[in-house]
Design a binder for these strands. Sequence first.
RNA 1: CGGGGCGUGGCGCAGCCUGGCAAGCGCACUCGCUUGGGGUGCGAGUGGUCGGCCGUUCAAAUCGGCUCGCCCCGACCA
Length: 416
Amino acid sequence: MSSLFVPTLKENPQEAEIASHSLMLRAGMIRQLSSGVYIFLPLGLRTLNKITKIVKEEMDRAGGQELLLPALHPGELWKETGRWEIYGPELIRLKDRRDRDFCLGPTHEEVITDLARREIRSYRQLPLLLYQIQTKFRDEIRPRFGVMRAREFIMKDLYSFDRDFEGLRVSYEKMYNAYCRVFSRCGLSYKIVLAESGVIGGEVSHEFLIPADSGEEKFLVCPACDFGTTQEEAKCPNCGDSLEEKRGIEVGHIFQLGTKYSESMKAYFVDKDGEEKPLIMGCYGIGIGRTMAAAIEACHDEKGIQWPLSISPYEVVIIPVNWRKAEQRKAAEEIYQELKKRDFEVVIDDREFSAGYKFSEADLIGFPLQVIVGEKMSQEGKIEIKIRQNNERWETKKEEVLTLLLKLKEELAPKV
RNA sequence: CGGGGCGUGGCGCAGCCUGGCAAGCGCACUCGCUUGGGGUGCGAGUGGUCGGCCGUUCAAAUCGGCUCGCCCCGACCA
């Protein structure tokens, strides 16, 4: 850890009001550049990349193909769908040197539909699921809570193209299930609710929420059945019970768009019967940075972050309590090498700080597994292992550390 | 956009109301010793155009005007 760039803060930063924002700053994961614009430091980026990896694996599993669309969009495309006006001041606009209109993409329906209309000719090319993980720009009225509502943020967006509504339903369901897997694999409990589709447009839409008091999204749930919705006027269609209002963080949103964009942008294909028809579309988003913040909202205590193992920046920290004791240093180093060999993501706290300092910082950063090499090593050859999540502690012989860690890792892995 | 708050070494704050004494405290940082199972202890140091501009005054961190930035609540939004 002596060479890692992890600038931690002892005190609560003045600008942070909610736990995740404060802890991301304090644990040295992010820094603010400007209102709603954040730097991801090495530790923060590791978690971001882990979530990204899970998302990609699940998108691929569901038949998605990754591509990369530009962030810089020609204004004409947005004028074509009318969203140049509709999107309002939230759309960041700019002009090139020849005075042509451009904008920074807040979402990519226009660009993907433009691609689709140029490349998709036949029903034989369908269904098609294309996705990207990319930076979006939205000039929010009020950015807040750190990366939770930022003006520049990383999002996974997938677009589905089908020949008919039955196909759309199949694609939608695939995504619905993929989203369940994504959030489960991130170690999060989530709630799926019926949602309004807003400026994106379309018919059916569901939101994936992480329940949290600090969440900005209000939703109604039925305590008896599993029904949930964001719509105020909803009448519990499943059973007669009255709905409870709760708050959550919207980490994912899936939409059945239908022909909204394919009609307005003339994205047609030729169906089996020889007729030209509009592509039936769906779009599906996951806020990557927001998922990270939501995970911290859901998993923290007064000491710091309690990362779910699957998205923690590192899995294990090894803390030699007294760096001056050669046998502790040596044992720590040996365990480190052994774990490295078995592909653990591990760091060793090789700094000459006091034990308390290192413990506090390990808890702040939230390493799920902590290997503590202390006096018992010197005297009895024993190592302590602590689970951050529940503060469970295990003592074992040095030779057994790897075996125990493999077992604990297995136990901590989310069941999907 | 309406309402509220903040801006003083890297971080967290005091000082401002009631102008003047040397711009202070804690943390961090550097050096020395000390300590090493829950942010060790002691000592000595480094570092600040008090967000910016204009004004009032013999004198401005402090009073007035303008401005920039940041945060919170609301409306709005994925």
